[in-house]
Design a protein around this nucleic acid. Structure first.
Ligand SMILES: [Mn+2]
Ligand SMILES: [Mn+2]
Ligand SMILES: [Zn+2]
Ligand SMILES: [Zn+2]
Lengths: 145, 145
DNA sequence: TTAACTAATGAAAGTAGATTGCATTAGAGG
DNA sequence: CCTCTAATGCAATCTACTTTCATTAGTTAA
């Protein structure tokens, strides 16, 4: 009769509900897939892993947009103009080490948020965010001569 | 009869020549425009400022690509998937404070290069670079309610 | 349960920035 | 000049993403 700790998908769905969103099969599946991924993924990778007979890419994009709106996921803009998506803990955000060849991304424990905030405010800016990603060639891709 | 300090356009053109490149009117003009800009600019902004009767956008892109190849300019990938270009001193690179509304970008004196390099190497990565850009809304755009 | 409301979805078309293919032009060297 | 080929312009293409709109399916409450 007590409510569970809710570190699960229910927390996220409840957040969407609170914002007036409906809980659909596709939406549940997309959130599940995001939870399964260990690395940031592209919209198309998410669609592929979803495996519901037909999940249109546009549906994935719309759900990702909605999820970002409530702070459940983070969008990672890559050098090449594309983006990856990653589930984030409440109030958190992450930075990554990304392979330029295979686009695999692993989380980096490093943030310049504090330094940046002061500077940006001093320049008269508001609503400050930052992007920081490290690029290189991973061991695997490097050995593939 | 002595060679000038060469902090001018000649240094850059010489670098292109050294790489087997030709010195064309369009190319000179594009470099001039890059030198005139005080802020990072998009390919199309560069084309517009060039003002040669007809400079095709594709020519601007190709020259920017070549200039980046010899380290004369830096490419700044934005959150929205587009990119800006900026002349950089030899061996240097810069980070910026960018307005999400008007896309104006000013240079920030802040770099995490050192911290990043060690981490990335520890993960087995090579050819390491990093992107770091701060976003916000500038005073002008903020007052435009 | 069922009806009504409307958010979510899918199919198709559209967008924007950047890139490619190819015929033509024009640097650079002899 | 003449030759060689890099650079250019134009058009077509690409790709990631967005918009439009008709249809489907959650949600709520009668
Ligand atoms: Mn950070
Ligand atoms: Mn740096
Ligand atoms: Zn790799
Ligand atoms: Zn602004």
């Amino acid at each position: 009769m007590n409510s569970a700790p809710d570190s699960s998908i229910e927390t996220i769905l409840e957040r969407m509900r609170a914002g007036g969103g409906r809980i659909t099969k596709k939406r549940i599946r997309i959130v599940q897939v995001l939870m399964q991924f260990e690395h940031p993924a592209s919209a198309d990778e998410i669609r592929q892993k979803a495996e519901l007979p037909e999940t249109d890419l546009v549906t994935v994009y719309r759900n990702l947009e909605a999820l970002q709106g409530i702070g459940v996921i983070q969008r990672i803009p890559l050098e090449n103009g594309t983006q990856l998506f990653e589930l984030t803990a409440p109030g958190e955000h992450y930075h990554h080490l990304i392979c330029r060849e295979c686009h695999q991304a692993e989380r980096l424990d490093l943030c310049i948020g504090k330094e940046v905030l002061g500077r940006a405010k001093a320049h008269g800016y508001s609503q400050i965010t930052h992007v920081m990603e490290v690029y290189g060639v991973c061991k695997d891709c490097d050995s593939d001569s």
